[in-house]
Amino acid sequence: MIGSRSTLDTPFGPFTAVVDADGVVLAAGWTTDPDVRLLPLIHASLAPDEVVERADLGAVTAAVRSWLAGDPAPAAAVPVRQHGGVFLQELWARMRDIPAGSPVAYAELATLAGRPLAARTAGQACQTNAIGLFVPDHRVRRNDGSLGGYRWGVEVKAKLLETEANWP
């Protein structure tokens, strides 16, 4: 299978998305080196045999542009696929339901996924999430309210949250 990738300049740095032949997002994030920082995140069972550079990924690129313009709905609707167990899949799905501008704590995310005592697993879901922005793990904080870590840098996470908090 041949996949595609595209990079857009954003106020937070270059944003790259990698999609499969059907346009399903397999990895995405803020990086200048997708070969090193994105492609290894794709599980072998999902990985394309080859990834070609494209200027535009259709609905995926449009969703990123919409998010940058203050409309997060298209990004939440873009199809995504990543490898993980049933509960990780549920946590990633619940992340997609978190409204922009309303971050939640790990414990709240675990509760949303039906397992209120699984805050550590919620943290693991954020740590292993390969699909930044489309699976918005930046909207999940530590239980004490601090930002916690972020694959793309805490500074980027803070800017993303600030941007979303200022949308109407």
Rank of each mutant, 00 (worst) to 15 (best):
V36L: 13
L112W: 01
H138V: 03
E50M: 11
E164I: 15
A105C: 14
A27T: 13
A73C: 05
A130F: 06
F134D: 00
A77R: 13
E90W: 00
V64I: 11
F15L: 15
H43D: 15
N143W: 05
Y150L: 06
P34L: 12
I131N: 01
A122K: 03
E90A: 11
G58T: 06
A77D: 04
E90M: 09
N166H: 15
R65V: 05
G148Q: 03
L133P: 00
V36H: 13
I42M: 01
D49K: 11
G148N: 04
Q82K: 07
A47F: 10
P74G: 06
K159P: 04
P48V: 14
G101T: 12
H83M: 06
I131K: 06
P11L: 05
Y106N: 01
R37G: 02
R5N: 05
V64P: 00
V140G: 00
A44V: 15
F134W: 08
P74H: 09
Q124W: 05
A55P: 14
A158P: 04
A100T: 11
D144M: 03
P34K: 10
W167G: 01
D144R: 05
D56G: 00
P34H: 10
E53L: 13
A122M: 01
G132Q: 12
R141K: 12
D71A: 06
Q127R: 15
D20V: 10
V18L: 09
T121D: 00
G132R: 02
A110M: 09
A27G: 07
G84C: 10
N143F: 11
A118W: 04
D137K: 08
F12T: 04
G23N: 04
P79F: 06
A28C: 09
M1I: 09
Y150K: 07
V19Q: 02
W67S: 01
H138W: 07
T16H: 08
V86Q: 14
G123F: 00
D22T: 12
R96H: 03
G148T: 08
V104N: 00
L147I: 11
G101Y: 05
P79S: 13
E108Q: 12
D33A: 14
L91G: 01
P11Y: 06
H83Y: 09
L39G: 02
A44I: 10
P168F: 06
S45E: 14
L41G: 01
G153L: 07
R115D: 01
C126K: 13
R94I: 03
V80K: 09
Q89W: 02
